[in-house]
């Protein structure tokens, strides 16, 4: 797509002749008409149901609305950051376990990774929401959402880290061992720093998973952007407008994270070349 490589999109078609050009032009016009009609239909539906009315959208003219949503976003980011760090810590342990030469340890790690990857985040959230209190453990609301999101992401992160470790050439380990380094030193001073650099783009992409999962914070009543949106709605009676704007904010943040991951991946490739 960049750097002179031809994407499949461009390669599939040769430069069109006069006949093909006409067909493409006609199809372009036709598709534009269809898309415009679709957009018109959506706006029309908003119009006839009165949802374009300024009283629904004037909420966003107030600074207080944005301040409140911003406060919610801060809550969202706090959970996302906490979850990411905890997930990384758990993932490191899982990955080291999986790579361990002691068989039972690696079996247990594989089982834990499969569990983390095969169970929906919501089930983990309900677990932390409902179970600790049955045993008299009072978990702060923040951890009721942060821990399950972290556990749910840790399996994926562990596998990502492992793929990074596997990507480091074996010669590096052999060279380091022949210099008399211990196993631990070889891993943490030679192999892991390189592995980590390999997987930075994937790790950024996995932040998207974490950020999406934080939207379930309303289950445990943690004040994230979603919950604050709900409060705004009960105050201003503008459900459609508020949820739509909030969804767009989430989409934009995740899109930027996704772009950052793609950028880092491209950056690394050009740096290596």
């Amino acid at each position: 797509m960049t750097n002179g490589t031809i994407s499949i999109r461009d390669a599939l078609y040769e430069s069109p002749g006069p006949k093909a050009k006409k067909i493409i032009a006609a199809a372009t016009v036709l598709s534009l008409v269809v898309l415009a009609a679709l957009i018109y239909l959506v706006i029309h539906q908003f119009y006839i149901t009165g949802q374009l009315d300024s009283r629904y959208w004037s909420v966003f003219a107030r600074a207080s609305t944005w301040r409140y949503l911003g406060k919610g976003l801060l809550g969202t980011l706090k959970v996302a950051l906490g979850s990411s760090l905890v997930a990384f810590a758990i993932a490191m342990v899982m990955m080291l376990g999986r790579l361990s030469s002691i068989r039972p340890v690696s079996w247990i790690a594989v089982a834990l990774i499969e569990l983390s990857r095969g169970i929906p985040t919501l089930l983990f959230i309900y677990f932390f929401f409902l179970v600790p209190s049955q045993f008299g453990i009072m978990l702060p609301v923040y951890w009721k959402i942060t821990l399950p999101v972290a556990i749910s992401a840790s399996g994926v992160v562990a596998e990502t880290l492992r793929s990074g470790v596997n990507a480091v050439p074996k010669g590096q380990t052999e060279a380091a061992l022949s210099l008399g380094m211990t196993d631990g030193k070889v891993f943490f001073k030679i192999v892991f720093p390189q592995a980590f650099r390999y997987v930075i783009p994937s790790l950024i992409a996995e932040l998207v998973i974490v950020l999406k999962d934080t939207t379930f914070a309303y289950v445990v009543s943690y004040a994230d952007m979603m919950l604050n949106a709900r409060v705004l709605i009960s105050n201003y009676d503008a459900l459609l407008a508020v949820y739509l704007v909030v969804a767009v904010i989430y989409i934009i943040i995740n899109y930027l994270l996704h772009r950052a991951a793609v950028f880092m991946a491209g950056h690394r490739k050009t740096a290596a070349a």
Binding site: L211, D213, Y218, Y243, A247
Partner: peptide
Amino acid sequence: RNIPGAALLIL
């Protein structure tokens, strides 16, 4: 690919 499932379902 970027919308959280909860947000989509609520909408």
